[in-house]
């Protein structure tokens, strides 16, 4: 389906020269080691079933095509399985590069709604998968445990601490519902 004619040529006016440095500062330290061999994509279970191409995203990032990288919906198909990281001959750690690009995407407002909801749960309950129904407490009793575990589910002060940490890092604003 892909042909040269269908792809727009890369417009160098769009290049963001800081993008690579941003990625390096955000955990994708070794991105510039990449020599585009494709071992990562060849190992990638996400790429085997979706249009997610880890090598392609790294190439675009190296070219400074920030907007294309951070707005791509397929950026979120990486399961962070680290198979590519274990096989990359150049020690790029593509997984960490992808996570860094995701961090930048989120900072610029590209966050999927279900992800935002999960993040909000941690700030509200201290847990991404909370003890939010009585039936879960009953399940615990059925296996012979106390209804509430000794984690944030039974320690409201822990949830307060999480909220204060998120406020300090600015994360609370990042995941807050956007006012229309």
């Amino acid at each position: 389906m892909t042909s040269v004619e269908e792809k727009a040529p890369i417009d160098i006016d769009e290049v963001d020269r800081d993008f690579v440095q941003m990625i390096k500062r955000t955990g994708g330290t070794n991105i510039q080691n990449c020599y585009q061999c494709g071992t990562c994509s060849g190992s990638c279970p996400a790429g085997a079933r979706t249009n997610y191409l880890v090598r392609g995203i790294i190439r675009k990032a190296l070219l400074g095509l920030k907007e294309q990288c951070i707005s791509a919906p397929e950026l979120w198909y990486c399961t962070t399985c680290y198979t590519c990281t274990d096989r990359c001959p150049q020690d790029v750690s593509p997984t960490d590069v992808i996570k860094a690009i995701r961090n930048i995407a989120v900072a610029e407002g590209y966050m999927l709604e279900p992800h935002q909801k999960v993040a909000q749960k941690v700030l509200e309950a201290g847990h991404a998968v909370p003890l939010d129904k009585e039936s879960w407490e009953q399940l615990r009793m059925k296996v012979g445990l106390e209804p509430k575990p000794p984690n944030a589910s039974s320690h409201p002060e822990a949830v307060e601490e999480i909220k204060r940490i998120a406020k300090k890092t600015g994360f609370d604003k990042l995941v807050a519902d956007k006012e229309e």
């Binding site: 955000t26 955990g27 900072a107 992800h115 000794p150 984690n151």
Partner: peptide, 25 residues
């Protein structure tokens, strides 16, 4: 028992959102 522990928080999720917040929690 680890009293008052929270979500780890999920590495692929929170680590993908904001590295400093992930590491702080």
């Amino acid at each position: 028992p680890m009293e008052g522990a929270s979500c780890c928080p999920a590495p692929g999720v929170f680590g993908s959102f904001d590295r400093v917040t992930w590491a702080s929690i």
